[in-house]
Design a protein around this nucleic acid. Structure first.
Lengths: 339, 339
DNA sequence: TTGAAAGCGCTAACAT
DNA sequence: ATGTTAGCGCTTTCAA
């Protein structure tokens, strides 16, 4: 049996409250007794029981992170740093992947008394109202993915995809590209993919042509993995549209797309320039290295925790927008003469 | 304030014990009262408090997974499936990444009353004794990574790297390769990298030459990511050794290695055949697609949970060895004539 | 079938 | 500075 605080108290010849004090408010206790208690703790190998403490304090020091795709190293990097930051503040993190079980998760969050949750996921599968429900129960929330939530109720952290898309298009424009496709992987009717909006907006800005068939949606239920990139690229080639540059919703998709183009005999970047978003490490090892709008994932993960943490401590929500930076690989180059 | 069981009892006009019963042993309660209680629960939006329940039952329904590298999609796939299997049995999983904090984690596991832990990590940074310490406290453990632990105390799940390495070498042998290098990324003095052992053993078996400089270690603290593969490959080329085939400790390393070879003007597979382990999806999209010994990651993750779960329920440990299968991509081919 | 009450290990007034 | 004690919300004998 694990020793309890009572055991320690008995061995040290003090009350249980005193043991609590040396653990939680060491300043208010005599150095001498503290020493005795510490000795007893050590001798028994005593470890406080977080469960009991939680029941009494109403604090669990647990937070959750919900994401849809553990397989994309982009999320891996964010989770890693989020977890790391949380640990430094003594929080434990529960990782929840698989959005199809989201409802169960939300229930669990309440039941287990999580103090906060970082939800990074596209919103087309769940309702914001559910989040408000959690907030009502005292669970703090930070979202990412343009869930259009009330900023007074939940915090949020987003990538500035509008600006990033502008930079991408500018980059391609300067290379002389005119017909630029976008492989979204999602659905154009969904309003939350800022990349999609930014794409159209920036084309206009640079006086470049937009045509419906240059914008490739995914198929429901949408996914944005490497296979999706491959599939979208295949469909783009199937349309017979002319294009010299292709922007992909993320790096993984871009890698899949390059594969598809190469299979069909196109050379990258000579025939087609390809660019992605995220800045995952693998992209830099690809041949050619993938040009991408890179997210500072370390900062992103850490910032997400900080926002959540401050919400937990102060009750105040906050928003953060992360800037992406262009990383030029060999996958983009001057546009070929359009035949 | 969240409603408690007392509120429900009051509203339904029953005792708190009855509420517990309709929740936990619905069979022993009259349908009529049960109905009344359920109505009250619904009306109040009541959710049981897992914390309080845990304190009373000594079960938290939480398990942990410890891993070193969230960035390798290989682990991502395993985590995902492990978590999924756990959820089906109503367990919540805590993901712990970053082995440098392992001691803190182990403490936390005790403190928070985790019921079990899946540790997938190389053992050179921590002591098995610490695991035994957890086992003593009643925490069940399953390891992966050839931590050489007492099989009566902890369960384990491993890849059969010895057999897999045999298959790789056989594959290369049949293609006519003679001088085959191995990029380990770890240290040859460490006994737990079965790939390393298998490499030497299988070379012998096929009467192929082994030379120290064909086996490339990493540098402490070892890592086995894409950069490590790149670095090891560079060092291999620096030795001046002759070789026509290179086996890499995992797929990520293999991708990095291919990049290095290509940078130095070697063609794959014409000049050098490359093969990895794991079978991550990205490898299939590489140009050329990476030949690999593929792990059934879905099965692996699920099986890991099952072993842990059965250990939790029955107290019995168990071991499992997973077989890998050769997946032939375009990165291996008949050996070129050695100049 | 249902209810009363003790107890899980800890915290936090409050009293000494 | 230290001890006493009443909870925290739930489970689980034991009685009714």
């Amino acid at each position: 049996m694990r020793p309890t605080r009572t055991d320690v108290a008995k061995l040290a010849g003090v009350s249980t409250a005193t043991v609590s004090n040396v653990l939680n408010r060491p300043d208010i206790v005599t150095e001498e007794t503290a020493e005795r208690v510490r000795a007893a703790i050590k001798q028994l190998g005593y470890r406080p029981d977080m469960i009991a403490r939680s029941l009494s304090t109403k604090r669990t020091m647990q937070i959750g992170i919900v994401l849809e795709d553990m397989l994309n190293p982009y999320f891996g990097a964010i989770v890693k740093e989020f977890e790391s930051a949380a640990n430094e503040q003594n929080y434990f993190v529960n990782v929840c992947t698989g959005l199809n079980r989201l409802d169960n998760y939300l229930d669990d969050f309440i039941t287990r008394g999580l103090e906060g949750i970082f939800i990074t996921a596209l919103p087309y599968k769940f309702h914001v109202e559910k989040l408000y429900n959690l907030v009502e129960k005292g669970i703090k929330i930070i979202t990412s993915g343009n869930i259009n939530a009330d900023s007074r109720l939940v915090s949020s952290i987003e990538n500035d995809y509008i600006a990033a898309m502008h930079d991408v298009i500018e980059h391609l424009y300067n290379l002389g590209h005119i017909n630029i496709a976008y492989l979204s992987g999602l659905g154009r009717e969904l309003t939350y993919d800022l990349r999609c909006n930014g794409y159209r907006k920036s084309l206009e800005e640079f006086n470049l042509p937009y045509r419906d068939s240059l914008l490739i949606d995914g198929e429901y239920p949408y996914s944005t993995n490497i296979k999706a990139g491959y599939d979208c690229a295949m469909r783009l080639m199937g349309t017979g549209e002319k294009f010299t540059a292709v922007i992909c919703g993320n790096d993984l998709m871009a890698l899949g797309a390059m594969k598809a183009f190469q299979e069909k005999g196109f050379k990258i970047p000579e025939d087609i320039s390809v660019v992605g978003f995220d800045g995952i490490e693998i992209g830099r090892y690809w041949e050619p290295a993938l040009t991408t709008m890179s997210v500072d994932k370390t900062k992103f993960g850490r910032k997400a925790f900080e926002l959540l943490h401050s919400n937990i401590l102060t009750g105040k929500t906050d928003q953060f927008i992360s800037k992406l930076t262009l990383w030029e690989g060999g996958s983009t180059a001057v546009a070929r003469k359009q035949s």
